[in-house]
Design a protein around this nucleic acid. Structure first.
Length: 449
RNA sequence: GGCCCUAUCGUCUAACGGUUAGGACGAGAGCUUUUCAAGCUCUAAAUCCGGGUUCGAUUCCCGGUGGGGUCACCA
């Protein structure tokens, strides 16, 4: 079967794209790329009341951010003429019929739509249900079968120009040549009626793969109403797209082997539908954060700086990049640390108080003063050009070990940065350079007078 | 409730019937250039229950129970 594989992702623009929603897109994408097939994005905008341009833009933006590039993009509404044609054909063939609805007979169901009472209300197009057993082989779940009789003659369109989801999906999948329908498990129960429609249309049946859902901490399907954040919000929060992709892919799927940090290219290479999990997975924010940290660490210093600059729209001192990279969880973290936090020592002259200077030193003022003076003396002998963290370590560390590390290293560190938390004293000295290091040491020594 | 899907540490998961049931996140303990972060080491932590099949079941079958999904003129 050398047939080209064609998959699609079909979000409806009735909300922002979130971690759960995009999952079907990610898997369909990985499957398509792994198989050297085609990946289509279809915006399902048949519900004109709830679909908005803003949501559509949000979805497309999120897909672009994640790097899920598509081969074709459609809006379902662009196929309106074709839908009408097929609808009329079905009715002409007696496989569907126009049904007069007795609106009074279902008062309870009309409660949500008082605004729709207008024209054309009483007429819908129903599918003539052959009432047979439908079974299909799902790639992830195996054989599934349904008794379709309980579906009755279900509605496939509100009018000839307003097809309902089930009908539009089947028609479009057929027209676009979709061979594999990869979507969330919440669509399993929709599948039999779509198969029925497909058979009536004479369309080939696609292969189905129903993905396990992502559940929130409350064990319910992730939804915006329950606080699922939009992908674009994760971007604002400083997450890397590769982390989201990696995390989402490994929720409900796992390659052979124990490596968990994977790039998009590796995911494509390794991905198979056969290894997707059957049961739902709970979304764990903490693990996402870990993926993010890991991907940050793997960025080159240049790339990290580039992204951080873009994220925070400020310039970044290259000297701080390695420090930032190892202590930060998100780009936002990095941005905040840079502006007001532990790494502010470079700009501002250190301001500190005597207590902090002695706090971790476990020694008296004069004692500490003596130690710092000795350190300053030794550092003074290093040439300006040789004043690196390594060199400072080489000079100071043996002395610190001899005298007692706490009584040297702690006050030295505080003298250089003035804050309770910071990188180690050697790194600080290397970053500050000889002149500033000696200047700050001097200030601290004077203070202890 | 009907129908459908599903079941390994708290969470994500590995183990084509035979393993001391492995890894990761998180948690706890310790080490370190005695701060913070990172890193490293160690520890606790799981096969839902009951029946089969089998020499042998996490794995296959059946039944319970639990969890999820779905029952629209929404997608």
């Amino acid at each position: 079967m050398g047939e080209k594989i064609i998959t699609r992702f079909a979000p409806s623009p009735t909300g922002n794209l979130n971690i759960g929603g995009v999952r079907a897109g990610i898997f369909a994408y990985l499957f398509a790329r792994h198989s050297k097939g085609e990946f289509i994005v279809r915006i399902e905008d048949t519900d004109r009341l709830r679909s908005t341009k803003e949501y559509e833009e949000n979805i497309l933006e999120a897909l672009a951010w994640l790097g899920l590039e598509y081969d074709r993009l459609f809006r379902q509404s662009e196929h309106a003429a074709r839908h009408e044609e097929l609808l009329r054909k079905l009715v002409a063939e007696g496989k569907a019929y126009v049904s007069q609805e007795n609106t009074e007979a279902t008062p309870s169901k009309a409660k949500e739509s008082p605004q729709k009472g207008g024209k054309g209300r009483g007429e819908v197009i129903r599918f003539k249900n052959p009432n047979k057993t439908i079974s299909f082989d799902d790639v992830v779940h195996g054989s599934i079968s349904f008794e379709t009789a309980e579906l009755k003659d279900f509605v496939i369109a509100k009018s000839f120009t307003e097809p309902v989801f089930h009908f539009a999906v089947v028609a479009d999948d057929w027209d676009e040549g979709v061979t594999h329908v990869v979507r969330g498990e919440d669509h399993i129960s929709n599948t039999p009626r779509q198969i029925l429609i497909g058979e009536a249309l004479g369309a080939p049946r696609p292969v189905y793969a129903h993905l396990p859902l992502i559940l929130g901490p409350d064990r319910a399907k992730l939804s915006k109403r329950k606080g699922a954040r939009a992908l674009t919000e994760y971007r604002e929060a400083g997450y890397l797209p590769e982390a989201i992709l990696n995390f989402d892919a490994l929720l409900g799927w796992h390659p052979r082997g124990e490596e968990e940090i994977l790039t998009k290219e590796q995911l494509i290479e390794l991905f198979t539908l056969e290894r997707v999990q059957k049961s739902p997975a709970i979304f764990d924010e903490g693990k996402l954060l870990w993926f993010n940290r890991e991907h940050i660490k793997r960025l080159s210093d240049e790339e990290f700086a580039r992204r951080l600059e873009q994220f925070s729209s400020t310039s970044v001192n290259p000297a701080l990049v390695p420090l930032l990279k190892e202590r930060v969880q998100t780009l936002r973290d990095a941005s905040e640390t840079l502006q007001s936090g532990e790494l502010s020592f470079l700009k501002e002259a250190a301001v500190y108080d005597k207590e902090l200077l002695l706090k971790g030193a476990k020694a008296e003022g004069p004692d500490v003063q003596k130690n710092l003076s000795r350190v300053a003396e030794m550092l003074g002998e290093i040439g300006v050009g040789d004043f690196t963290a390594e060199k400072v370590t080489e000079v100071v560390f043996p002395y610190a070990t001899k005298v007692g590390r706490a009584r040297v290293l702690w006050p030295m560190r505080v003298a250089l940065c003035g804050t309770e938390r910071s990188p180690d004293p050697f790194t600080l000295a290397g970053l500050l350079g000889k002149e500033k290091t000696l200047e700050r040491l001097g200030k601290a020594i004077n203070m202890l007078q």
